[in-house]
Computed example of a mutant assay.
Amino acid sequence: MATPNPLKLEPVTVEDISDITNLWFAAFTDPEIRRVFPDTPGVRKWLEDTNRNDLAEKPFQRYLKVVDTESRNSQGRLRIAAFAKWDLSMPVERGQRYLPWHENMPAQLCEDFFNREEINRKRVMSDKKHFYLDTVATHPDYQRRGAGAMLVKWGCDLADAEKVEAYVDASKDGAPLYAKFGFVDYSNPGEDIASMARPIAI
């Protein structure tokens, strides 16, 4: 008899903001990411404020979490194994992706990093309607347990139902997960980020 999966998909709430911020910094430890998002108290608060603002002001952004129903954090809440942000808007509706950069963040490096992502997304997707997988973060304790796949599948299923394409800026290590869901890598040679698009399901 199969053991029930303790991982469950739920929407993120305002009460989760601190937990998903801590998870984000635990998941993204690449030196290049840490140059853009240094792990300081100020940057952590900036990321919390950004996510709180998105939850309150941007209904087209869907924050989802995968919780472990068999584990609780120090506050007694179910432990969050992974979370994602899917942006369901048209590109022209999206507005500014982040709040103004925190003083601890290298502003020009931030601008260059995210402008490069936007240029590549525009190159691949043009102005077509698509769902954008903005963020997927899995805590190291939950790697290869299916939490990330649950979050990707949610958006892919919605894209199939609404007959739209999907897009993600993937790390080279993360690209195989997205390929399993039909994403195709359209990166230019030498790119360190995979520009991946998923066609409309037929």
Rank of each mutant, 00 (worst) to 15 (best):
A84D: 01
R44F: 08
T138E: 04
C156S: 09
E93T: 03
N115E: 14
P41N: 06
D54Q: 07
V124K: 04
P140D: 06
R52A: 10
T21S: 12
A147S: 13
Q75A: 15
S126Q: 14
Q108L: 13
L78Y: 14
R144W: 02
W24T: 05
H130C: 12
L78C: 06
E57T: 15
A107P: 06
K128L: 15
P41V: 09
P31L: 03
R34C: 08
L64V: 05
T50D: 12
F37C: 02
S74L: 13
R34Y: 03
D87P: 00
T40D: 08
R144M: 12
F131P: 01
G76A: 06
G76L: 05
A137E: 01
Q75E: 14
K129V: 13
T50C: 14
W154Y: 14
W86K: 00
D19T: 03
I80T: 07
N73K: 09
K122E: 15
K45V: 08
T138Q: 05
N22H: 13
R145Q: 14
R35E: 15
R34E: 10
R144L: 04
R94M: 10
D54P: 02
L133I: 08
D19S: 13
D30K: 05
T138N: 02
P140Y: 06
W24S: 08
N73T: 12
H130Q: 08
M90Y: 13
Q75F: 12
R77C: 07
K65S: 09
W86L: 04
T21E: 09
F28C: 02
S71F: 09
L23G: 00
E117W: 09
P41Q: 05
E48L: 08
G42C: 09
V66S: 02
Q96I: 05
T138R: 04
R34P: 02
T21K: 00
M125V: 07
G42D: 11
Q61M: 15
L88D: 03
P59E: 06
L158I: 07
